[in-house]
């Protein structure tokens, strides 16, 4: 929206292009282990960006985004089973993606109408409960096969290993998330959401259609999350309730955003990179310590850098500039 956003500087474009070029070359030079790490960073980084569509602008923090992740996965997985081998794997994946996105749109609207009226902590708890309920339902009814789980067909693409192929799919997903977020942030919708985040009642007084904007942000976020869930289970090749309706997925999206910087596009990606490298590489052999470390990082961030690493950098940068101008003045 004019007046709120400057044009993207050339340096940022150049940096983004450089990163993208690196990301495209990576699967042809990196080892499968590193590629798997990169896959996770792209997928969960992209999901964290999607979470930010609502949680980054406003104080509506969903603690249950795994609900949409799992819902998408189950919708696509079960539909793929029904379609059967008459359809190619790629066709099943694409139809599944469309179906998952459509289902999550309906579910998000249905859940948002009552739940988005709750503010702050009540919204967070309601979303947490929603995810738990979906997880239980998928396990309890045999129709959904969530307790036993079921396999997903193997997607192939000529000339690419599986790990490379899914790397590119996750990269594409991450790019879509980033594009949606940037477009929203720079639009009237994003400005309105930012105001809702600061003072919802005043925003409404100034003509921001608060209910509609929250709904749109929530639904967009849910649809992207569902698409991420579909790609995730196709990458695994097998799914149960436990693999998708995971509370640690919901929490990690918040954690990554907080570590990097909530409400920014680079923040969640930086957060995901740092946390995934930290837990999988540095502590790769100490699986038991992951959750402990995650908790410690979260507490440290809340106390030391509530605006995330990007917030820290920005503060240091503006201090340096201030120091320079002070020195420059005689």
């Amino acid at each position: 929206m004019r007046g709120f956003h400057k044009p993207v500087p050339a340096t940022v474009w150049a940096l983004a292009a450089l990163l993208l070029a690196g990301a495209v070359v990576l699967p042809f030079v990196a080892s499968p282990f590193h590629l798997r790490l990169a896959q996770q960073i792209l997928l969960f980084g992209g999901l964290a960006v999607a979470w930010n569509l609502l949680g980054g602008f406003t104080t509506y923090w969903s603690f249950g985004h795994a609900a949409f992740f799992g819902l998408g996965a189950f919708a696509a997985g079960l539909l793929g089973q029904q379609l059967g081998a008459e359809f190619s794997v790629a066709a099943r994946l694409i139809i599944g993606l469309a179906f998952a996105v459509a289902i999550s749109l309906v579910a998000a609207v249905a859940v948002a109408l009552p739940v988005l009226r709750l503010r702050g902590i009540y919204f967070a708890i309601a979303m947490l409960a929603f995810a738990q309920i979906l997880g239980e339902v998928s396990k309890t009814f045999d129709l959904f096969q969530g307790a036993m789980g079921f396999p997903l067909p193997l997607l192939k693409f000529p000339g690419l290993e599986k790990v490379q192929l899914f790397y590119f799919l996750f990269l594409l997903f991450c790019l879509v998330s980033v594009a949606v977020f940037v477009l929203v942030k720079r639009s009237r919708l994003g400005v309105g959401l930012t105001c809702i985040g600061q003072d919802e009642d005043t925003a409404a007084m100034l003509g921001v259609p608060t209910e509609r904007y929250k709904l749109v942000a929530f639904v967009l976020s849910a649809m992207l999350t569902a698409a991420g869930g579909v790609l995730y289970v196709y990458g695994l090749g097998f799914m149960t309730s436990e693999t998708v309706f995971r509370i640690d997925i919901s929490l990690n999206l918040i954690l990554f955003s907080m570590v990097g910087g909530i409400g920014t596009v680079a923040g969640p990606l930086i957060g995901a990179t740092i946390m995934i490298l930290l837990t999988q590489v540095v502590l790769g052999d100490l699986l038991d310590l992951h959750m402990m470390l995650t908790g410690a990082v979260l507490i440290a961030m809340v106390i030391l850098a509530p605006k995330g690493l990007l917030g820290l950098f920005r503060r240091a940068w503006s201090r340096r500039r201030l120091a320079e101008t002070v020195e420059a003045t005689p």
Binding site: G3, F4, R188, V191, G192, T194, C195, Q198, D199, T202, A203, L206, G207, V208
Partner: peptide
């Protein structure tokens, strides 16, 4: 809006 600039606050007034 305490975290927005003065000009941004004014522009929000003309949001419609």
């Amino acid at each position: 809006f305490a975290q927005m600039t003065i000009q941004e606050n004014l522009l929000m007034g003309a949001y419609k």
